[in-house]
Design a protein around this nucleic acid. Structure first.
Lengths: 184, 184
DNA sequence: CACTTTGTTCAAACATTTTTGAACAAAGTT
DNA sequence: AACTTTGTTCAAAAATGTTTGAACAAAGTG
C-alpha cells in the first residue's frame, strides 16, 4: 500500500520480469507484455491478485480465445494459478467460455464492456461487504440500547452508529447509479 | 483475497484477539472493540492496513480527541504503527488535529462526514491511478501505431486500447458525481 | 485396459505488506 | 546540563496473501 505516495519511501520489488525474459518461457511480445502489466496494475488497485490481471490482460489482447494451457504457457505461470484465476474471473463475469468451443478443451475470452465488469465487481466484492456491515451495525445499535452506561454516552454512540448506518445506505443506493453511468 | 467467497476454503487467521484480551493490554471495552473491528474490516476492503482501521475506529467512537500514546496504549499496538497510521489518515482527510490542543501533545479526532472521506480517498487513492493509467495507455496506443505488424492486428489493438482509454475517461467523469451523491 | 490430455485441489514455498521496537531528534522541565 | 515526554524513522520480524507443483479425478483414445 502507498508504495508511491507521500507516505512511504520504499521501491517496489519488480518480481518476475527478468527471468521470464531469460529462459525462453515468455511467449509474449513486448507490447503484449506491457498490456498485461497494465492490467496487473489495474487488478492490484482493486485488491485482486496479480495472476488475475495477467490472465485477463492476455485474453483482452488476444484476437482469439485461449485455453488454460495456452495462458499458463504464454504467461509463464502455473496451471494451478490459471485455474484459480480463471474461476475467479468467471465469477466476476470478466471472462467467459468462448462460444463454439466445440473441441475438448475449454476456450476463454474476456468480457469487454465496462458496465458488465463493474456490475460483477459490485455484486461480488462490494455488495457482500455492505450487507455484512449493515448487519453488524444493526447488532451494535441494539447492544448500545441495552448498555448500562450513562445516557450521554449512549446517546453519543447511537448517533455515531446511526451515521455509519447512513453511510452504508447511501453507498448501497449509489452503486446502481454508478453502474448506470459507466454503461456509457 | 476472497477469504469468504465461493472461491476459497481457508479460514481467516484471527491475529491478535486472544492475547490483547489476556495480558491486560486492551483498555478497550467489548463494544469499543467491536466498533474498532468494524472499521478494521472497512479499511481492509479499501486496501488499507489494519492499524489505520483501528486508529480511525477508536477516534470515531471517542467522545474526546486522543493523543498518539493514548491510541497506542488502548489499541495495544506500537507507537510506530500509530504514527504512520495517523499520518496516512491525515493525508486522506479522515483524521485531523483537534482544535484547542493547547497542550504539549497533539490530539486527534476523526472526520465523520462521508463526502469528505470519499473525497480524500478518491483524491489520494483513485485519481493517481487513473492518471497514470491514462498515460500508459497513451504510450501504448502510440507504440501500436508504429508497429510493423499486419494492419488487421494493429486495428484490433487500437480498438482495444481505445476501449480502455474510454473506460478510464468514464471513470474519471463518474468520480465527482459519486462524491456528490454521497454528500447526502 | 493402459495411456494421454485437460483441469482442479491444496499444502508448502515464496513474495509482499505490515508491524514492531530500538535508535533518534526536538522540545519541555527540574 | 541531565532527564522526561512526544513523536518519527527504518531495518528486521511477523503476518498475510499468492503461487507453485505434485497428486488427483474425469474423460477421451488406441
Amino acid at each position: 500500500m502507498f508504495e508511491q505516495s507521500v507516505l512511504v519511501g520504499k521501491v517496489g520489488a519488480m518480481r518476475r520480469v527478468a527471468e521470464s525474459e531469460v529462459r525462453g518461457a515468455s511467449e509474449l511480445g513486448a507490447l503484449e507484455r506491457q498490456v498485461v502489466d497494465f492490467f496487473v496494475d489495474g487488478v492490484k488497485v482493486l485488491g485482486l491478485p496479480r495472476s488475475m490481471g495477467e490472465i485477463y490482460g492476455l485474453l483482452f489482447i488476444s484476437q482469439e480465445p485461449l485455453a488454460l494451457d495456452d495462458l499458463a504457457q504464454r504467461l509463464g505461470i502455473s496451471k494451478g494459478s490459471v485455474s484459480q484465476g480463471l474461476r475467479a474471473l468467471k465469477v466476476l463475469g470478466a471472462v467467459r467460455e468462448a462460444a463454439g468451443g466445440d473441441e475438448r478443451r475449454m476456450y476463454f475470452e474476456s468480457a469487454v464492456d465496462l458496465k458488465r465488469l463493474v456490475g460483477g465487481f459490485i455484486r461480488e466484492q462490494i455488495r457482500p461487504h455492505l450487507d455484512s456491515g449493515k448487519e453488524k451495525i444493526g447488532r451494535l445499535k441494539e447492544a448500545v440500547r441495552v448498555e448500562d452506561d450513562d445516557a450521554c454516552r449512549r446517546e453519543f454512540l447511537t448517533e455515531r452508529l446511526g451515521r455509519v448506518e447512513h453511510w452504508i445506505r447511501s453507498s448501497g443506493r449509489v452503486l446502481p447509479v454508478l453502474q448506470q453511468l459507466l454503461g456509457e
